[in-house]
Design a binder for these strands. Structure first.
Length: 503
RNA sequence: GGUAUCGUGGCCGAGUGGUUAGGCACAGGUCUGCAAAACCUGCUACAGCGGUUCGAAUCCGCUCGAUACCUCCA
């Protein structure tokens, strides 16, 4: 597809409305997404965010953009409430080297992303691998007068930045600096070093016992949490780039501070479009480890949790996520997942049937039937949905409507001649493109492995049953069907022979 | 307390000034040796109260409720 064929609109948190996407460089798109902090197993909410951005990445690709997708790994600089580095804390608890902790959970994170069938980003930079770049950015900020040093730590001067660049700080999160100050908590250790409570650290001097430390012109220490994204997005995407994404909860302070840092360092705005995904809820509440209202991806897959009656496969969970728009909160409930499971399986089966359909032999007379038009409309709706801020719910709804045509053709309820061969071909192509390339829903029946053997066995069994049926030997026929049902395979007798599905 | 977002039918969840979202569930029907699936039909809503408008679920105000953020967060 050519990038100019369609108008893509995306909801920009910066402007608070849907903006038409106009890339900085024709045909190219640069996207930075805040990645995980690798101090613990990936959280389900992370999965939703990264699945959402994977769809965005894939759709930009499908539209013909050459996309550079950068998603970082945060392996330093994240302070916990008591001021200790998250990585170091994880290491102390597990008696591991910090980098061992980072490696372990990075691998776990990658495995989970693969399970959800997401594409790896183009570049996946680590914070610890970009200490010089971060130090350089601190220097840039200092030289432009927006930072100050206190006892070896360097702070960003929010008040001064706001005074000299009015309207920037707070624009993304809709905050007013004065109110922030009034409400600001005072529980950070370094608070007394700051000129102003709204200021934040861009370089922290190490305290005794800190193990993840580097030399800098100011002290032996470590970079502030917000700094890595500013430094790495600049390095790989340039000072100004197209899209910046992340979870809604990063809007403030992280993204707000990130913008301030970039502006402070180069005097220019970083991303032009800011995209934020919404939270995943469990039974109406935000997931939280402390009050027990949480479920891990693995628990969800295995069903080993009081919140679900059974396990739901990764693709069912992904389908469930895609049924909602990425900017809406999504509530995980057992009933909703069960509904998603049925919907997912039906969609997969529909695609299998569709791909095996052969166009009618009749010559095309050039006319466009009502069915042709309806199918073409449905295809257009699916794309329009994606063009409208990546509305996967609309895309899935269109696929569902298109699916009924597939079954009608397969069941001969719609005369094959009613659908022009080229329309059927287009439907096959688009349907598959949506499922495989854009929404990236794997057919778990295919992915189960060893399908060759199973196919062969099923072929044989169904042949025997077909013979029994032609002889009206219903006893044998039903015995086979019931036996297969007992191992989870359902047999369906159609006009064109018998098909089967698992599960 | 401040800020933001949201409140849609039995459930989930799109839409956002005038026309069917979709899925799941449910009820009838068609097809079928029976069944399942599929297809058809039905059920059918926009928290409450005011206002703007020829017309509002959609815009505005208030009330109630929910969720999130307010320097740990995807």
């Amino acid at each position: 597809m050519n990038t100019s064929d369609r108008t893509l609109k995306l909801y920009n948190s910066l402007t608070g409305k849907k903006d038409v996407f106009q890339p900085l460089h024709e045909g190219h798109a640069g996207m930075y997404v805040c990645g995980p902090t690798v101090y613990y197993d990936v959280h389900l909410g992370n999965c939703r965010t990264f699945v959402s951005f994977d769809i965005i990445y894939r759709y930009l690709n499908a539209l013909g953009y050459q996309v550079r997708y950068v998603r970082n790994i945060t392996d330093v600089g994240h302070l916990t409430d008591d001021g200790e580095d998250r990585m170091a804390k994880g290491a102390r608890v597990a008696q591991l080297e910090p980098m061992e902790v980072a490696q372990k959970y990075t691998v776990g994170f990658h495995d989970m992303m693969r399970i959800f069938n997401t594409l790896p980003p183009s570049i996946e930079p680590r914070a610890t691998g970009h200490i010089p770049e971060q130090i350089e950015m601190v220097q840039d900020i200092l030289s432009r007068g927006y930072g100050y040093e206190r006892n070896g730590s360097v702070y960003f001067n929010v008040r001064k930045f706001d005074r000299e660049n009015p309207g920037i700080y707070g624009q993304l999160s809709g905050r007013v600096l004065d109110e922030l100050m009034a409400e600001s908590r005072d529980n950070l250790k370094s608070q007394d070093e700051k000129n102003d409570p709204a200021d934040f650290a861009i370089w922290m001097k190490a305290r005794p016992g800190d193990i993840m430390v580097w030399k800098s012109p100011w002290s032996v220490g470590f970079p502030g949490w917000h700094l890595e994204c500013s430094a790495m997005s600049t390095k790989y995407l340039g000072q100004t780039f197209d899209i910046h994404g992340g979870g809604n909860d990063l809007k403030f302070p992280h993204h707000e501070n990130e913008i301030a840092q970039n502006q402070g360092a180069c005097g220019c705005a970083p991303a032009r479009y800011w995209l934020h995904t919404n939270m995943l809820l469990l039974n109406g509440k935000k997931m939280s480890k402390s009050d027990g209202n949480t479920i891990t991806p693995v628990e969800l897959f295995t069903g080993d949790s009081p919140f679900v009656s059974k396990g739901y496969s990764p693709m069912v969970v992904k389908f469930f996520m895609l049924m909602a728009h990425y900017r809406s909160t999504l509530d995980i409930t057992d009933e909703a997942l069960a509904a998603a499971e049925k919907g997912y399986r039906k969609l997969m089966e529909t695609n299998r049937i569709l791909q095996s359909l052969r166009p009618a032999d009749q010559p095309y007379d050039g006319s466009e039937s009502a069915a042709d038009r309806a199918i073409l409309d449905g295809i257009d709706t699916a794309f329009s949905g994606m063009d409208d801020d990546f509305n996967t719910a609309i895309a899935l709804a269109s696929l569902s409507e298109l699916g009924s045509f597939v079954h009608k053709i397969a069941n001969k309820q719609l005369d094959a001649g009613e659908v022009s061969p080229w329309v059927l071909e287009r439907l096959k192509t688009v349907f598959n493109a949506f499922i495989v390339d854009i929404l990236a829903l794997q057919d778990e029946l295919d992915a189960a492995g060893d399908t060759g053997t199973v196919e062969g066995l099923m072929q044989l069994i169904l042949d025997i049953r077909a013979n029994a049926r032609t002889q009206k030997d219903w006893g044998t026929s039903d015995k086979i069907r019931d036996g297969l049902a007992a191992v989870g395979i359902s047999v369906k007798d159609g006009k064109e022979g018998t098909s089967w599905t698992k599960g």
